[in-house]
Design a protein around this nucleic acid. Structure first.
Ligand code: ZN
Ligand code: ZN
Ligand code: ZN
Ligand code: ZN
Lengths: 132, 132
DNA sequence: GTGGCAACGATAATGATTGTCAAAAACGCA
DNA sequence: TGCGTTTTTGACAATCATTATCGTTGCCAC
């Protein structure tokens, strides 16, 4: 049987990725983060970066965004359901909450008899700094 | 100067793809559509299906959706800005309009000084038929 | 008709992500 | 601190949807 140990081990690599995410402002790709780690002299494999990010995402500790025609982007976020206002240029991100939107989505889905409702919502724009 | 011809030629292949899209209910992938065309005996290359779909999308005649971890999906839609309530199982789609959401997104972006605002929004669920 | 040029399509290339699996490292326990 | 078990790592190969090539085909304006 054995529902033994959840067994999530502390490794140098995991710490490095997590720490890096703590310092980043906007969203960044796995390959970006991997490159940054190498520049810092941290020795972490690309595969491990992908795996770690996926794990953190599954655990709800970071958010994933999949922009049109690009790689997946990751960012450490606050808890709870929220959405993002993201700068197309630099990735700077503002977390936004829209209770009205949430209820609207659920209501619309219910009206059409859809169950197990979820949604995705992202707002894109050019941030004050990047408008030049 | 010549603002000559938009030069969009009528071809058997383009007609076939467009016609097929007219009969489909929900969203379908390029590969799906290509397979359906072949079954009908239509001789259309996969590359052409991709190209045609992309062209139609650029022209605003069809909508594209990029579900998590899957291929791009295409569907012929009505004109104007709208969003989709999509069945995770069968792809059945309802077009929904949410003026309140549109203005909310613009307002939020403006409050933070973001310009050139756009957004993406999709609602997912299980349609009445697929709930069994 | 016919010539120019867009469209086609078989094929190769791309590129992010995932799978593989032997070697390395954690960690509970002695 | 040493050991065995189990997880994690990471170099490399594999996947797979999409895109780029580029010689051929065929639309269509004249
Ligand atoms: Zn910016
Ligand atoms: Zn929401
Ligand atoms: Zn359904
Ligand atoms: Zn909208």
């Amino acid at each position: 049987m054995s529902e033994s140990s959840a067994a999530v081990r502390n490794t140098r690599q995991r710490s490095a990725v997590s720490a890096l995410l703590g310092e980043m402002e906007g969203f960044h790709s796995a390959q970006d983060l991997h490159a940054m780690l190498r520049q810092r002299g941290e020795r972490v494999g690309l595969t491990t970066v992908y795996r770690t990010l996926q794990g953190l995402a599954d655990a709800g500790e970071i958010d994933v965004m999949r922009p049109p025609g690009g790689e997946h982007l990751y960012r450490r976020c606050s808890e709870g359901h929220h959405h993002h206002l993201v700068c197309r240029v630099c990735g700077r991100t503002v977390e936004v909450a829209g209770p009205a939107v949430e209820s609207w989505a659920d209501r619309v889905a219910a009206q059409h008899g859809y169950a197990d409702v979820s949604h995705t919502l992202e707002i894109f724009g050019t941030c004050p700094t990047c408008v030049r």
